[in-house]
Amino acid sequence: MLNYRNTNIVFFVLLALLLLLSFFVKVNWWLFLLLFVARFIVIITGSTQIPLNFFLKAYCNNPLEKEKKVALTFDDGPHEMTLLVLDVLKKYNAKATFFCIGKNVEKHPEILKKVISEGHIVGNHSYDHSRLFDFYRKDRLVEEIAKTDALIEKISGKKTNLFRPPFGVTNPSIKRALEVTKHHVIGWNIRSLDGIIKNEKLVFNRIKKLISPGGIVLLHDTSLQSVNALEQLLQFIEENKYKVVSLEELLDIKAYED
């Protein structure tokens, strides 16, 4: 299995072989460079592709699910648009998981209360969702995650077990932090790209092509195109006999501590 540990083992074995070989024959310097570049590419790919489980185990779907069940997840709220998302979900009697940013919880506590009161699950998506998040050291990561946990617990009365790393990036520091906080890491296998694509039809069509039993859909509750794409998606799900289920049901995990 391709992961960080195995990558390092292969790298150091190959490096040792090249060094040993260099005692007997001339070894071109570019072979060493090629080895380092290959390791760099593999690690960057593993860091940015959460379904690879390169540094840690992340739940990105349920590959054993044969029934037409999917889970909906929303990142980066709570936000004013969250209210419109909730209206669409209620219209189709669908439940979702909202991965919330701590500073947005502080800004919109009433919206988070509404999310919870309507039966949706809440997860942790860091405190500030900084672009530097994956460069933080373990202690700061633990502090960020714990701070957001506390904000969610203050409103919900429950401590969430679910964490989604900003941008889906993982690395050794994040792994060590999560060994402390004990969260389940939640990824996705159906990425809508609604944070990049501004055309709701293109967002919907992308999801439609990727949807399959056991899938986890990533959307954002921060834009009108996402709200409109969600409406089209739920119509499609209804027409094609899919069922929206919670992450707890899809993955057989607990969203909150007992």
Rank of each mutant, 00 (worst) to 15 (best):
M1Q: 09
I9K: 12
V10N: 04
L14R: 07
A16C: 11
F24W: 11
W30A: 01
L33M: 10
L34E: 01
F36T: 07
V37H: 10
A38S: 10
I41T: 03
I41A: 14
I44D: 12
S47P: 08
P51E: 12
N53Y: 01
L56T: 06
N61W: 03
L64N: 15
H79V: 00
H79E: 02
L83N: 07
L83K: 07
K90D: 03
K91Y: 05
N93C: 00
A94E: 08
K95E: 08
E106W: 08
H108I: 00
E110W: 00
K113A: 02
V115D: 03
S117K: 14
G119W: 05
V122G: 02
N124R: 13
H125Y: 12
H125I: 05
H125N: 02
D128I: 02
D128Q: 05
K147H: 06
T148M: 04
D149F: 13
L151P: 02
K159D: 09
F163R: 09
V169C: 06
T170K: 07
P172G: 11
K175Q: 03
K182V: 02
I186W: 10
N189R: 09
I190Y: 09
L193V: 10
D194H: 06
K201Q: 14
K209P: 15
L210Y: 05
S212Q: 15
V217T: 08
H220S: 04
H220I: 03
V227F: 01
L230Y: 06
E231I: 11
L233H: 09
Q235R: 12
S246C: 14
L247K: 11
E249C: 07
K254L: 03
Y256G: 08
E257R: 11
